[in-house]
Design a protein around this nucleic acid. Structure first.
Lengths: 338, 338
DNA sequence: CTGAAAGCGCTTACAG
DNA sequence: CTGAAAGCGCTTACAG
């Protein structure tokens, strides 16, 4: 493996220059005489030379790699990890590569996963996404951020941990307005208990703002069941129907809950959107697969990923970062098609 | 960043030994006098010393990191990447970490993504999963494997590229037997055109074996539409119904196609499982979310992930590897509940 | 069992 | 503009 490796010295030999010059040419740093530059580049090409990143990382004591941590809840398995995060993970990987960064991925729950990638010198810092229910993990990252480790998160900001989020209040209000527009007059809001997860509180607030502006009655129900979001939606919907509340519209603050609610509505023989219209939040792919397909606020994943990466780079280098909310887009589908 | 770093020299200083000894103790290599071992370990703990992996990687010219490449088809976006792969990716990450390996993840399609992680000295080799439609990418990895780079794949084996797969023929046969058991007498098989994707050919073969053993008529339909699997299933199902073929059971060789088929059946007003029973393959989470939930062959993702990782380690070190098929498990749900 | 030293493959002051 | 040299933080023969 190592025996066959071509190093900068080989290139230097072929080009008849010193190894330092090879390094300078290939990094395009200081000025190099044009003819020498050409000679070195040719030699490098001829030998198929690619600089060893481990060596240059060690020398520069930086890694140009991001440790991407996906938090998942022990209540869910990896299989039921919210697809919002798995998809976002893919986009982050692409966005980071586009900026010349490699991405080390690790899953982490309260019980599993270590946080040592940066301490071991394998990454420059962390991008953290995933379930915000996991207070223990978030606290660990907050502590790291206090210690000066670059940490950028999705969803939850705190003192030193800079995070971005969707324009939750406005987007939720837009979705609820849409329900009103298609004729809903008794709209309930289903949501996980916000707890540390700010986004849910904000989406509920968006719902409330519309209800109050329109003088309509608020019906907000939270789920505390320690299961995955889908089951939370299923159970919560049944509970609301059991209460005997009259309903013609549902706003779920997360798509998985909306999908769970849809199942419950079917189990009760209620037609969607005929008797009850339904709208979710996130824009996960599965909302297109259901029957009927579900209207939702689609988050702009590529934009979120790019922002996380550019903010990561900003935090690492002490530059300014942009923490403004990333706008989502209401996508109207069958579940509100009247 | 670097200024504050504690190195093996600091530990050596505190313990009153040489840096070599620190290295020996912390790697547990050769024998070290017990009292010295203790002194070093204490000093290391006191200073919070963690060895710099970049430096040791450089020295040992190995990285203990795996480049995990997820191939996706340009026809699909990242958002519609088969959840089978995103979930598998998570399990691989966990399995690799458990073996002391870090995982560099990158997405790759025909148009995007580079294959240079190993050449740049950042990883020891590749684990490749994802869409087998992408012949161009697979060929690149085959070429790398020929050159002696460790490459382990899911689904497609070839000369030097060792891959593992599910027990596709048997598992498919089991699923089709189940359809027969619940009373289906006119079962169609829907599948993506196998092409390079051996698994689909094998699953169709499993279907055929049951049909011939039972003396039942084969109805196999392939999709060539250049879209994601869901839409392939939707269109193919409509096409089969347009043909006027009498049906009371569907075996789809992939869950996403099954979900698409389910939509089509609903659009045609056919009840599932009442008039048509439906069974998929893969066991993606979404099969629990549909209405009705879908019977499927659930792949054992944690086992697959562990095998990919242990085979990767085997290939890297020249040890024997286990390429036997990984068994799946038929999970019976509402779509075949009669 | 332990230390001094070489070396992994780079980058980057420092002279010239 | 270019080269010789130091050094990033480790591992591992090599002596002792």
């Amino acid at each position: 493996m190592n025996s066959g490796r071509v190093t900068a010295y080989d290139v230097a030999g072929l080009a008849g220059v010193s190894q330092s010059t090879v390094s300078r040419v290939l990094n395009g740093k200081t000025s190099v005489r044009p003819d020498i530059r050409v000679r070195v580049e040719e030699a490098a090409r001829k030998l198929g030379y690619i600089a060893n990143a481990t060596a240059s990382n060690l020398r520069r004591s930086t890694t140009r790699t991001i440790a991407l941590v996906v938090l998942y809840d022990d209540h869910e398995g990896i299989g039921s990890l919210n697809p919002f995060y798995t998809t976002l993970q893919g986009h982050i990987s692409v966005a980071a590569n586009a900026e010349g960064y490699a991405v080390l991925t690790s899953l982490m729950s309260e019980k599993m996963g270590d946080v040592g990638l940066v301490m071991r010198g394998l990454a420059d810092g962390y991008i953290v996404i995933g379930s915000g229910r996991d207070k223990v993990c978030w606290d660990r990252f907050r502590a790291l951020a206090e210690d000066g480790v670059p940490v950028v998160g999705w969803g939850i900001a705190s003192q030193r941990l800079s995070a971005i989020s969707a324009a939750n209040v406005d987007a939720a209000a837009g979705a609820v307005e849409h329900l009103v527009d298609i004729g809903c007059r008794a709209i309930a809001c289903l949501s996980p208990r916000p707890g540390d997860q700010r986004q849910f509180a904000d989406r509920v607030e968006g719902y409330r703002s519309v209800m109050s502006r329109r003088g309509m009655k608020e019906t907000v129900r939270y789920s505390d069941v320690p299961t995955d979001r889908l089951e939370q939606g299923l159970k919560l919907m049944h509970q609301v129907l059991d209460e005997g509340t009259q309903l013609d519209g549902i706003f779920a603050t997360c798509d998985l809950m909306a999908i769970g609610a849809l199942r419950a509505l079917h189990e009760r023989g209620l037609s969607v959107p005929g008797q009850v219209a339904l709208c979710g939040f996130d824009g996960i792919y599965a909302t297109r697969l259901t029957n009927p397909s579900i209207t939702t606020v689609e988050q702009d994943m590529p934009a979120i990923a790019r922002r996380l990466v550019s903010n990561f780079i900003g935090v690492s280098s002490g530059d300014a970062i942009d923490t403004s909310p990333v706008p989502g887009k209401l996508v109207i589908r069958e579940s509100t098609g009247r």
